[in-house]
Design a protein around this nucleic acid. Structure first.
Lengths: 246, 246
DNA sequence: CGCCCTGTTGACCCATGTCAAAGGCTGTGG
DNA sequence: CCACAGCCTTTGACATGGGTCAACAGGGCG
């Protein structure tokens, strides 16, 4: 039952103007006119199978990517094998920005499920954003938003205790699913407990125990990767007034 | 003994083309010609006294700043009073990038000593970087470098133990002092143990103890904020092969 | 000169890591 | 369609790194 017509993984033409992810992606806030010009820019799509790398630390940087379907994690590896997951990305989000700095990627990007990205050649993006003010501004916002997000993660890792971190994580996921038109109360996590733990600076057992405790307290219902939020306000309450940890 | 001629804190004209921090700052890599055009852009300088804010979370974002003299910390505050220091900045570094995302700053920037910054009005920067390709590229690199740096901090906070964090911090400071023409082996920290601790996700007592242990082991000599690195290789060794912590 | 802020050190404790075992899901091959 | 293998998750028992609390010391500024 394989596809009888082999489809080149890099052969599909993309069109931002046709895409229903506009609101979440690089075109956000641009005029129709400007979005049409973006179409020139975004070259091809690329399919990435679950567990495969979109790029690796050390790869030459040539393009940034907009996630068209699926989801990814980015991570950094230390020589001794320790892994730090630096983020989870969903549809409409832009990845690869780390590569601009040195012309080489500094982290790995791995698909959490079969996924598809729009390839945005970076040289072309710079060129076009010199002509299209709205694009320039939106691109800067995307980068700045990444910086702000990173600061939030630092806050999480540097100042919050295990349960606060997980609560913040769940609320963040919920909000992002909502923005994509999915239920805010019920969703399917694509990553393992170990990956969540790495992101949150915790061991997988600690993550698992925190899930169990949340469930015992009636805040959520967990079944493997399937999460149902029963008491979002309760989760939010966890984020405040906690005695400072770690 | 006050200055007899009152100097407006915002009245001094800046010139990148004259500045000896070029190599570390926004002009890096630009042609002489392009740097001359930067001079139009960079409006004024502003002096900030020790402990004063350059901007606060919630302030309207209008400009980014290049540090001309002195040093700063940036931090994020939680409602319950917890503070996370997100970075320490030295001469030539650019601060304020967090504000692009929402038009409002999301963190506080506080001078660690009497300092001076060059004010770079953001609207003008976007305008000029549409005309000057090199400036555009350099600005993007600055933002990307901040993202990469943040990932490094996440690694630190998420995967390293207390002594590794401090060793990484000291090596990083050493390297940045070197880049500024100061000794790599001997320097003066501008921040308190508490601020270092907040940055590294540790309590001040833990930072103090780690300093003492490093001293006992002959890796460094500490006297208050004055640090002398005696065995840089030893510090580097601490960063590897450590059993994964926290 | 004295106060206050910063830093150091000790004793104790707790949150989270470590190690271990077992159960459930999923995918694959027979 | 079933059985098996491997991964993921959960849970328990125990260990420990770093937090907490407290006392004190040094240095700089008023």
């Amino acid at each position: 039952m394989k596809a009888t017509v082999p489809i080149s993984s890099a052969g599909l033409k993309t069109a931002c103007s046709q895409c229903n992810l506009q609101e979440l992606c690089l075109p956000f806030g641009l005029s129709e006119n400007d979005i049409d010009r973006l179409d020139e820019l975004v070259g091809t799509r690329r399919k990435i199978k679950r567990q495969q790398h979109l790029y690796r630390a050390g790869d030459l940087f040539e393009a940034i990517y907009a996630i068209r379907a699926g989801s990814f994690k980015t991570d950094v590896l230390l020589e001794d094998g320790r892994e730090q997951v630096t983020g989870f990305q969903m549809t409409g989000e832009i990845i690869g920005l780390d590569g601009i700095s040195t012309e080489f990627h500094t982290c790995n990007s791995i698909a959490l499920e079969d996924s598809e990205v729009c390839v945005i050649p970076y040289a072309k993006l710079e060129e076009l954003s010199r002509k299209v003010e709205g694009l320039q501004h939106q691109f800067h916002k995307v980068m700045s938003r990444e910086i702000v997000r990173d600061h939030g993660v630092m806050m999480l890792l540097g100042s919050m205790r295990a349960e606060e971190r997980l609560a913040a994580f769940l609320l963040n996921m919920s909000q992002r699913f909502t923005a994509r038109g999915f239920s805010s109360a019920e969703f399917h996590l694509r990553m393992t407990r170990e990956e969540i733990g790495s992101y949150l600076g915790l061991k997988l057992e600690t993550v698992s125990r925190a899930f169990s405790r949340f469930q015992d307290e009636g805040l959520i219902a967990v079944q493997q990767k399937h999460i149902r939020i029963l008491d979002g306000a309760g989760l939010k309450r966890l984020l405040q007034h906690q005695p400072a940890g770690g």
